[in-house]
Design a protein around this nucleic acid. Structure first.
Lengths: 345, 345
DNA sequence: GGGTCACGTTGCAACGTTACAACGAATATT
DNA sequence: AATATTCGTTGTAACGTTGCAACGTGACCC
């Protein structure tokens, strides 16, 4: 709340200066800027010349003050610089700018305080809406914001609230899609690799896969539990598998693409054919996983579309503030089939 | 320039409302917000209560208008959602907030128009400074901005200008560091893998490495040219190498970490020991490359520090606008030694 | 007791923009 | 010819905040 005082800066040309130079009133310049059609072409040309000559750039600050709000929304992300959020941001920005909105980003809500601080900053900036990927339970804070006229949409909020719009991903459906893809490709003996006990998203994915596989085959899936979700965890899991001497599964469904790549390479290193003997399926849709030794099939989360839809929902809610109904949208991941789950031999 | 008119929004409590509720004048509330020490504790407490009760959040818009500028800087990045820019942004935000500055991001300057548009938006927002990773030659535009009182710092600008501050990375020095590291680890026969003909950064890295190796050993480095810089390009290069029947090099210096990982896995799959028979060195400092089957040594670009320094330079330039001297800072990448370049046997 | 001083508080004006009502001039209508 | 209509332009006031000079009050000193 407390901040060092601002110092005054050197003056820059304003509408008045433009008006003086063009020989019209400030109002006409304002009209030129906001409703060019009501200004007669001759005047328009003179103003245009003056604008150019002075290097006039409209002071958005004053404009926003005058209007009471800026045509601006904010996106609060956690720090993680992962591709998923990159795609998401692109979706947000595209959808927003298509409707004439400007997006302010905060990519660095690393810790909970910072996340709250970002919200405060954006409220002070009088953005009209906020998209947030919450790290903590922000519901009461977001409700406050909505009460004060700032619409909110949560993205991937673990526990959604009825009065706050949201978009989320159905991890269980993603797991089911994975299972279905593997079964359709002719595999019924599926091994899950990941850490469902530590990451709830992973647990949901595995639950979905097991559920579907059980429905179709009557038996479940094996699991190798890893510590983390890195390349090495994937390698280690396969080493453990090979050492155990157990028969190979027909397919491996990894908790994410890194684990899948680690597993893939370890299998290849052991002389096991992929997808000939074992299929490998990842999760996340990392773009460069398509360039692995064997292009990796994966379950892609529609990050870009999530960004678009979240933004469109936000815009709808902002426009129709009188209809206070919150909207919810649940996305289903889809399988991107590449070589690593191609036909078995 | 032309934009749809803004509509007026519902009113929110301002300093006046707080003042009325607390039984003081608006000026006192302003003092409370900006110079709390001049307000006597009793009054302070009453204002604090009023602020809390009304949910008052200071209107940054009005504050900025009044001050003629906001304590805000902007960072214009290209779209690439690569870890390097993530680290860079963190550095920028940390350095900025340490000094009480707010950072606006634009991560989506995908194409040249958009990049220019971002600059325009930020100028209209009256930011005091702009950090930019230019895609195109922005020098004249940046000079305009500086003339109008907005300081600029370019990051990684291919061709820097004297009157615009910059931070950049010395790729040649990075290549030399790589060469030195490999030679120090006991290897003199080094193979470069990448596409120097397509990417100038890669060319500079390879040139630096070759330069140093030649100085120290009297002979240069072999090269395998790849098409792109993906995992598969790394694998392919090693396949080509093995097929050629030529003797293995003692070390491989790859153009980036992905290529290095591809090469690494292909070597391991062929039963070649890393680092026992061949050392592998990447470039970029991807965090998760530490979790490869053999943790990958790499040349790390000090992205975080670049962000910090760039921001500090910007702040210096903004503060001392009277001293118009531009500052330049060139970074040297450093080697992160992990297992893949450990002792040869 | 008159004068000085320090301190906390206040009134005012201004930042640059824009919505709106009002205006004059030219054109159309009766 | 007088009135109505349209059109482009203009003057004014306000958005919420804050720096500054001015203010009243009480403490202090000679």
């Amino acid at each position: 709340m407390t901040t060092p005082p601002l110092s005054i800066r050197s003056p820059r040309p304003g509408v008045k200066d433009v008006a003086a130079l063009a020989g019209v009133s400030a109002s006409t310049v304002s009209n030129y800027l906001n409703r060019p059609d009501v200004v007669v072409p001759a005047t328009r040309a003179r103003i245009e010349r003056a604008v150019h000559q002075l290097g006039f750039v409209r002071n958005e600050t004053a404009r926003n003050l005058r209007a009471g709000a800026s045509r601006t929304i904010a996106l609060v992300l956690l720090d993680a610089w992962i591709p998923f959020y990159g795609e998401l941001s692109r979706g947000v920005e595209d959808a927003a700018s298509a409707d004439g909105w400007t997006v302010l980003f905060s990519n660095s809500a690393r810790n909970p305080e910072r996340e709250l601080h970002s919200l405060e900053i954006f409220e002070a900036q009088r953005v009209q809406g906020i998209l947030v990927v919450p790290q903590q339970d922000l519901r009461s804070r977001l409700r406050d914001l909505q009460r004060r006229g700032i619409s909110c949409v949560t993205i991937e909020q673990p526990s959604a609230a009825d009065d706050i719009s949201s978009v989320s991903i159905d991890d269980v459906a993603g797991g089911r899609a994975a299972g279905a893809h593997l079964i359709d490709s002719g595999r019924t003996d599926i091994l899950l690799v990941g850490n469902p006990d530590r990451v709830s998203h992973v647990a949901a994915r595995f639950a979905g896969c097991t559920e579907l596989v059980t429905e179709r085959t009557g038996h479940g899936c094996g699991v190798i539990t890893t510590e983390g979700l890195t390349l090495r965890d994937g390698s280690r899991a396969i080493q453990k598998l090979l050492e155990s001497g157990k028969p190979l599964p027909q397919a491996i469904f990894a908790a994410n693409d890194l684990v899948a790549l680690g597993a893939l390479h370890e299998l290849l290193a052991a002389g096991i054919e992929v997808p000939g003997q074992v299929a490998v399926l990842g999760y996340d849709g990392l773009e460069w996983a398509a360039h692995a030794s064997v292009p990796l099939s994966t379950v892609a989360q529609p990050a870009y579309e999530m960004g678009c839809i979240a933004t469109q929902i936000l815009i709808t809610v902002m426009d129709g503030r009188e209809h206070p109904g919150a909207q919810h949208h649940v996305f289903r991941p889809t399988v991107i089939a590449r070589e690593s789950t191609g036909r078995a031999k």
